[in-house]
């Protein structure tokens, strides 16, 4: 998939996201324009309240811009209705959250199965997709455990399996190591970077500078604006 690396995947132009809080207008995003190519490894950093999570939610179609346009895979997603956006979230976007957000009463395998269920994938095919996915993340033997029987690192791997089982083009990660100890965090980052090597576009919000600096492109946000856009040649520990 390397040969597609120069194709524009995400194109934000003049995006505003404003909230009305009481009689105060909060500009969570203020005139943000951003071009992201397929296969990029991006970290978004900045102090809390700088708008980095809002940007990530907006990229993931979990939030709508107040103004501006957003093209994902050459489709103007701001013009899509709820159902079409849901479809895109299912097929084209994967999410990894700080809090894992696994459904507690479902097993690891069933959690990974959820996007396939929502997409209406036939049962036999689901199996064919889930097993290698769990295998690749080293949690195949934990497939039938409930989340509360898994360690934090294992839970996040289940979440990554769930985010990637539909083979989306872009993976959005919001502080994916924020709830993990150092070792597990390192493992999770390694897994995510492995996915980048396979061609996925990874956009990761973090406030951990060391982790952020591993990305090949580092965005800094400040007061709802893109403050800095830094590119390095190759990812890896700095």
């Amino acid at each position: 998939m390397r040969e597609l690396a120069t194709t524009a995947m995400i194109e934000l132009s003049h995006i505003d996201r404003h909230f009305q809080v009481g009689d105060q207008l909060v500009k969570a995003l203020d005139d943000v324009s951003l071009h992201i190519d397929r296969g990029e490894y991006i970290s978004i950093m900045g102090p809390s309240g700088s708008g980095k999570s809002t940007l990530l939610n907006l990229l993931g179609l979990l939030d709508q811009p107040t103004a501006g346009t957003y093209f994902l895979d050459e489709v103007d997603v701001t013009s899509l209705d709820d159902g079409q956006q849901a479809h895109l979230r299912n097929k084209a976007i994967g999410f990894v959250f700080q809090m894992f957000h696994l459904v507690p009463r479902l097993t690891a395998a069933e959690n990974v199965e959820l996007p396939l269920v929502l997409a209406g994938v036939p049962v036999e095919e689901r199996k064919r997709l889930i097993e290698p996915s769990l295998e690749a993340l080293g949690i195949a033997e934990r497939a039938h455990h409930k989340p509360d029987q898994l360690s934090g690192g294992q839970r996040q791997r289940v979440a990554i399996a769930r985010a990637t089982v539909m083979q989306p083009g872009v993976l959005l990660a919001d502080e994916p190591t924020g709830n993990l100890d150092h070792k597990s965090g390192e493992d999770v980052i390694a897994i995510l970077e492995g996915l980048v090597d396979q061609g996925i576009t990874l956009i990761m919000v973090t406030h951990d500078m060391d982790m952020g600096r591993r990305a090949t492109r580092q965005l800094r946000m400040m007061d709802g604006r893109l403050d800095q856009d830094l590119r390095t040649s190759n990812h890896g520990p700095s």
């Binding site: 709820d82 097929k91 957000h101 929502l118 769930r162």
Partner: peptide, 16 residues
């Protein structure tokens, strides 16, 4: 609420 939000993030439509 969180679970429903998650289902939405995973691509569940309002109808689903």
């Amino acid at each position: 609420t969180a679970e429903i939000g998650l289902l939405k993030a995973l691509g569940a439509t309002p109808g689903q």
